[in-house]
């Protein structure tokens, strides 16, 4: 796993999550900027996952391969699903959906790092 890239993803996700919670508290609906920022976070996650997949073919592949791939799929799906669900809910609760998705991503990235550290190599 790529350290700086993971850290960047986690920081961006946390900042966005807090931003969405504040906007929800202010009783706003998800704006286009909100949705696009989430997709931007999704793009960052895609880069992270691609780097992780390349790492799978390297010398120190994670010992728990199945779990790692499962987490990769979940992680990459999270931001797009969040945006999709938020578009279905154009009220303040759509922002809370985005917040939940954004705040879950750091957990997934941390778990990915944990699993990647236990290598079979």
């Amino acid at each position: 796993m790529n350290g700086p890239l993971s850290l960047a993803t986690i920081v961006v996700a946390l900042v966005l999550g807090v931003w969405y919670v504040i906007r929800c508290a202010l009783n706003k609906a998800p704006s286009n900027t909100d949705l696009w920022s989430m997709l931007g976070l999704g793009l960052l996650v895609v880069v992270l996952v691609v780097v992780a997949i390349v790492g799978l073919f390297g010398p120190d592949r994670p010992a728990d391969w199945t779990t790692f791939v499962g987490y990769l799929i979940t992680t990459i799906a999270f931001a797009p699903v969040g945006v999709y669900l938020a578009r279905l809910e154009p009220t303040r609760w759509g922002l809370l959906i985005l917040a939940v998705a954004a705040l879950t991503l750091p957990v997934l990235v941390l778990r990915l790092q944990q699993i990647a550290e236990v290598t079979s190599g």
Binding site: T66, T67, G70, T74, L85, E89, T91, R92, W93, G94, L96, I97, V100, A101, T104
Partner: peptide
């Protein structure tokens, strides 16, 4: 049927997914 309910379902869904996926991996491996 409501916005807040959907957020609740999302969180419950995430836990349904993570708990069952984890169990599936644990039990099968």
């Amino acid at each position: 049927g409501t916005g807040l309910g959907r957020v609740l379902l999302l969180v419950y869904g995430i836990f349904a997914l993570s708990a069952s996926a984890r169990a599936l991996v644990q039990i099968s491996s």
